[in-house]
């Protein structure tokens, strides 16, 4: 058998990645969501540059100024802090929480999923039973427990959201890895004496990427939503830190006099989560047409 007859991983991957962006942009909702996500990420990254003032800069003379007041297009909060500035920095905290939780939880989950699928005989059972047990705890309960242990704060929320992401990612990755494991080129790569670690990294992982990518996008939206809910409950970001859920919670006390303080952060959370959900759905349709319904 000559080396050229061994099918390479590159051939097994559908060679359609180049057209992904084009296909995404064909769907108007997905295109809009993508543009919005890019804008939101840029705004969060550039917050210190874009923000008209300091996020902690309170001016009691302009307390609860409504949107449209001079110099305050979106008004001021209960401490007289500029809403635009607070929103930009709040977005930053919320997105970082989402990235860290999805990234850390997703990485651990993906690793466990690969291990379960690769060493199916002796690791699949124990790992997946553990994942089932972790799945029996809804994210909010994990959040409550972690906040009870470590005290309320951004760290607790990120830890809780990471933990609750692990079993979900592990299941997704295990599912797609099991399919890939049955393909001939894995057998072939094994036959030429490739090490397990290299086999997983070079051949197994790249072929499960689309599933991971779709899930991570959808999960990111959920993580933002859950994180903001935990912060709204007072278990996440603590004042005076600007975080969207915490801002909504603060504004709740002034709902009847100055509804904008609570409503504007809520609207922003809604659109960010919506954009990631729409984008995740569109990615799934584009990357994995079998899942389309």
């Amino acid at each position: 058998m000559s080396a050229t007859t061994v099918p390479s991983a590159a051939e097994a991957v559908p060679p359609k990645r180049a057209g992904l962006l084009a296909r995404l942009l064909k769907d108007p909702a997905a295109a809009l969501a993508l543009v919005f996500v890019v804008l939101v990420v840029a705004a969060a990254v550039l917050a210190p540059v874009l923000a008209p003032s300091d996020p902690f800069d309170n001016d009691l003379a302009r307390t609860m100024q409504p949107p449209g007041s001079p110099g305050l297009p979106l008004g001021a909060d209960s401490q007289g802090r500029d809403m635009i500035t607070r929103l930009l920095f709040g977005l930053r905290v919320s997105l970082v929480m989402g990235v860290v939780a999805t990234g850390a939880g997703g990485a651990v989950g993906a690793l466990l999923g690969f291990l379960a699928a690769f060493y199916q005989r002796w690791l699949d059972g124990p790992i997946m039973r553990l994942m089932d047990m972790m799945l029996s705890f809804p994210a909010i309960l994990v959040g409550l427990a972690i906040a009870a242990i470590f005290g309320p704060g951004v760290f607790s929320v990120v830890l809780a959201l990471s933990i609750s992401t692990v079993p979900l990612m592990a299941r997704i990755v295990r599912g797609s890895a099991l399919v890939v494991m049955r393909l001939d080129y894995i057998e072939a790569a094994r036959a030429i004496g490739m090490s397990d670690a290299r086999l997983i990294w070079r051949h197994l992982a790249p072929n499960c990427l689309s599933g991971i990518f779709i899930f991570a996008t959808l999960r990111f939206g959920q993580v933002i939503l859950l994180g903001s809910a935990l912060s709204f409950l007072g278990l996440g970001a603590q004042p005076p830190v600007a975080e969207l859920g915490a801002m909504a919670s603060e504004g709740r006390n002034f709902l009847f006099f100055a509804p904008h303080i609570a409503v504007i952060p809520c609207v922003l959370i809604f659109f960010v989560v919506l954009a990631f959900n729409v984008l995740g759905d569109a990615l799934r349709d584009a990357l994995d047409p079998r899942l389309r319904v």
Binding site: F232, G245, V263, C266, V267
Partner: peptide, 16 residues
Amino acid sequence: VAGVSVPVFFLGLLLI
């Protein structure tokens, strides 16, 4: 999709 994206507290605050 909007339903799974809306924060529960937002819906609650709007109704209140």
